[in-house]
Design a protein around this nucleic acid. Structure first.
Lengths: 210, 210
DNA sequence: ACCTAAGCGGACGGGGGCGTCCGTTACCGT
DNA sequence: ACGGTAACGGACGCCCCCGTCCGCTTAGGT
């Protein structure tokens, strides 16, 4: 489901290992973030380090493949939000779902926010961002989203959501849900909203820190 | 200014080194977070590793000393907020200032949120938290803070603020400022606020993850 | 000026992650 | 069944960090 355009023919055991590696990677990335040692992924997958490196020469490639599904989910969520006749409701839905997605998967957030070294784009990230921008504009026009909302505010919320950690996944998701609720509250147009400090550019030109 | 109750007499050069180590630690912690290698702190301070370990046997001790000032600043901010006759304005002030403080100092956030291993309390953290709870209650009673606000929401905001990263300190502070603005917006009592998802317990019993 | 002990820092052994090489295994086409 | 080769994985050398030991330096009292 991930990528069918493999280098044509791959031996059956190799393909099996590949899948097992991806499974292991997904599990570990989700639970512990992206800094798990490659070795550990290999160990969990039941293969040697060499095999892992053969299939995925760099961690970024592994990450990209491992989170392909999540990224599709992300796109799906955005598309679903855009499909909603009420753009504000659609936007809220996007915020909630995306926050939950990120809460459930620690590594994905890092990958999505390009905390990765060079970050040669984690696939459809750009598309997703742009599409949601349209949704936001419509919500704004409809008068439900505050006029001074900026797309970077969404990035801000995403980054912020990333900062939320808890001991268990359940708690994490709960916290993220509440956070999303607060964010929505902050974004909703309100007759007497204070002018809000200026936004900072975070989105585009940021290859991230570490 | 940090601690004058040193083990009675300390040789002048030793005391000098101690200060230089603390300066280096502050600089590095602020810029890069708490995971900078001890070696690097020593290098920057111009001392050998042994000297550093002699003065601060464990990283936690170093962290505790290094951030003593920040913690005092934190308390000062909270006290200032409490002193404000308008509790809501006081609370807003606290949120804004604390966010900025944390934005300017990457390591402090980690230290404050007990991302530290065992976290034997980073000094007056408890006090600070409890004091601000009182302030929040008053703001709530005054009808300016939403009634379903919980103290954990503040922790949430702090953790979230920690997630915000930027390339430069200036951008970081700007982003944090806007975030604080949004948070305040979310906290403000509003006639038609949606019921908000339930809060998660984050504050007390969390010795943190890693 | 001298002597003593407080203080210093280079050097060490241990541990862990990294990415790669190469002898061995086992898939698959004939 | 068998050969060739794709694929495997243990083992290697590298680097960085950790915390400590011990011979040397130097402050500071007399």
């Amino acid at each position: 489901m991930v990528t069918d355009h493999l280098p044509h023919t791959l031996r059956s055991d190799a393909l099996d290992n590949r899948e097992r590696i991806l499974d292991a990677a997904r599990a570990l990335f989700s639970a512990d973030g992206l800094d798990v040692p490659m070795r550990e992924i290999a160990r969990r997958a039941g293969v040697g380090p060499a095999t892992l490196y053969r299939h995925f020469p760099t961690k970024q490639m592994l990450v990209a493949e491992a989170f392909a599904d999540q990224l599709h989910a992300c796109r799906a969520i955005v598309d679903e939000g855009c499909a909603d006749p009420d753009p504000w409701r659609g936007l809220c839905l996007v915020i909630e779902k995306i926050c939950e997605l990120h809460a459930r998967d620690r590594g994905f957030t890092e990958a999505f926010l390009s905390t990765l070294p060079g970050a040669p784009d984690v696939a459809g990230r750009e598309y997703t961002v742009k599409t949601v921008a349209g949704l936001a504009q419509r919500a704004k026009d409809a008068g439900h989203l505050r006029p001074d909302f900026v797309l970077d505010d969404l990035i801000l919320v995403l980054m912020a959501n990333k900062g939320i950690h808890a001991t268990s996944t359940a708690t994490q998701v709960m916290a993220s849900r509440r956070f999303a609720g607060l964010a929505i509250q902050a974004f909703e147009a309100c007759p007497h909203h204070a002018p809000l400090p200026p936004a900072a550019r975070l989105a585009s030109a940021a290859p991230a820190s570490a």
